[in-house]
């Protein structure tokens, strides 16, 4: 088995420039192995989402470096970063961000179609399997507006899983869900980690959900205050 950690963040700092510079995260050093379910907690403004965006290559640190599967992502150009996000990462946000004009099936197919390399029939088959795994197959032809909040989030999760990512990054994925739907989402995360060996990093401030993760990292003022390790 590959012993290289999935994520290896070394002294990562993200500072927003301006007349009064704002530091979002400060000197974060963090290693996340494959197959781990990590919950990032902390008070509002502690830098949880900022760290997630840095790990997900949506943002670039002003200092330090982040290695994903041994590759230094901070030196990659924008296109290579985008390609890495497409092939190796999956995002779930608090808001589902589904494309309104596309059906549920169409939304799940988008990342696979963009990645390419597979015939359309195979992509559709894979999308239907993902939806079936999340109990959403019967809604495949519906538009997102015809779904409940929990259903939309499950479709967003299916979309995040479309290209079989090594790392799933979730930013307050249960923030808009009731407790039942929130638990369902976390159950899916646990299943992905246990059954498929994928890695999940989820930002949440719901401590009871965070308690279900293998590892809990608490951020305060942009620094790691606690790491259950």
């Amino acid at each position: 088995m590959d012993k290289t950690p999935l994520i290896d963040a070394r002294g990562v700092t993200r500072e927003l420039p301006g007349t009064v510079p704002v530091t979002l995260v400060r000197d974060i050093t963090l290693t996340i192995p494959r197959g781990q379910f990590v919950a990032i907690t902390g008070p509002s403004g502690s830098g949880k989402s900022s760290l997630l965006y840095l790990l997900g290559l949506l943002d670039v640190p002003t200092q330090g470096e982040i290695l994903l599967e041994g590759t230094n992502t901070t030196t990659l150009d924008k296109d290579r970063q985008a390609q890495t996000r497409l092939a190796r990462l999956g995002f779930v946000f608090q808001f589902h961000f589904l494309l309104h004009e596309f059906s549920v099936l169409g939304n799940v197919m988008i990342p696979m179609r963009q990645l390419g390399g597979r015939p359309n029939g195979e992509i559709e088959k894979r999308a239907r399997e993902l939806l079936a795994a999340l109990d959403m197959e019967e809604y495949a032809d519906r538009l997102p507006e015809q779904l409940s909040g929990g259903q939309r989030q499950r479709v967003a999760l299916a979309r995040a899983l479309a290209n079989d990512p090594a790392l799933i990054l979730a930013d307050e994925p249960t923030g808009n869900l009731d407790s039942k739907n929130a638990q369902q989402v976390f159950d899916i995360f646990k299943r992905l980690v246990e059954e498929k060996g994928q890695t999940v990093v989820a930002v949440t401030h719901e401590l009871d959900l965070a308690a279900q993760a293998h590892r809990r990292i608490k951020l305060v003022d942009g620094r790691i205050a606690e790491d259950s390790g």
Partner: peptide, 8 residues
């Protein structure tokens, strides 16, 4: 969201 998915 398209950019977060990996659209360049």
């Amino acid at each position: 969201i398209l950019k977060s998915m990996g659209f360049g």
